[in-house]
Amino acid sequence: MKYLTRQEWYGALVAVLVLGVLLSIASPYFLNSRNLSNILVQASVVALLAGGQTFVILTGGVDLAVGALTALAGAMAGYMMVKLGIDPYLAILAAFAIGAGVGLFNGYLVAFVGIPSFIVTLGGLTLWRGLAFDATGGFDMSGMPEPFPFIGYGELFGLIPMPIVVMVLFYVSMSFVLSSTKLGRYVYAIGSNEMGARQVGINIRWYKLGVYVVSGLCCALAALVLIGRMDSSSGKMAQMFELDAIAAVILGGTSLFGGRGSIIGSLLGAILITMIRNGMNLLEISQFKQMMAIGAVVIIAVWIDVIRRKRLLRK
């Protein structure tokens, strides 16, 4: 029990359970397997983005361009398949190449040139979305070829929706990377004490570059799931997803100041945000109040993070 309460993601777990109980009481439609599976499917795209974002935030950075990069990778893949008739698997490769390429670009500017990640990715937010519109002529593509309908709406063994399968596999491998590889361990070291990490001989530039590439690849994966789910692609998609992704990471107990946090927390955070939206939809709460609620939740989560950090520093 003590092990559990000491985890950074403990708060998120409690929040998910409490909200789940409240929503089950409030709406007769909340607690059934169909709705719970819906929530996980709806959470999948944000969860994938939050997974990559976790790496960036753990190093003390932030990636504001994940929504725009998702749109770029998705719109390009869709354009290649539907308009140009390119083989879907080549388009998938291209999407990952775009994700990795933009990640390299961001990482180079942050780690080697020394521009704050906030600025690089704030510029990227409009740069990559603009490129997504420009490269596809601003047109929507629809009718994605296989395997996209399967990725978006298929079910493994006719039971588990594919977006959930992708999300679970992703989180299993990401938690392995974070706990058992050099990249994972150095990410924590860089985030908690960058100077110290440099002094013990960690080549922090390369590892910092690495986290942006991870985030870029996650955007590409999220884009592929998203265009499968929408059966269409456009430069407009994934608007403001960076907010949901960052919120999921913070709600999951990862510190915005870097160095502390967990990947499982981000998964719980993504589920929590989706549950809030799902609950508000079922309770028929209007769009404007939903926007206000999500914004307030983000501020409260950061507030809690700041208080926790002050307590830690005092100890």
């Binding site: 439609y29 059934n32 169909r34 709705n35 819906n38 499917v41 709806q42 795209v45 998203l226 789910r229 929408m230 269409s232 407009k236 998609m237 994934a238 608007q239 403001m240 989706t274 939206r277 799902n278 939809n281 079922l282 028929e284 209007s286 769009q287 939903q290 926007m291």
Partner: peptide, 23 residues
């Protein structure tokens, strides 16, 4: 019941339709 897709975001509208099927 009146619900709206926040920011004109398609994936949000998809989620609302799914939630209304559940509802």
């Amino acid at each position: 019941i009146e619900l709206a897709a926040e920011k004109g975001e398609l994936s949000k509208q998809l989620a609302i339709v799914e939630d209304m099927i559940t509802r």
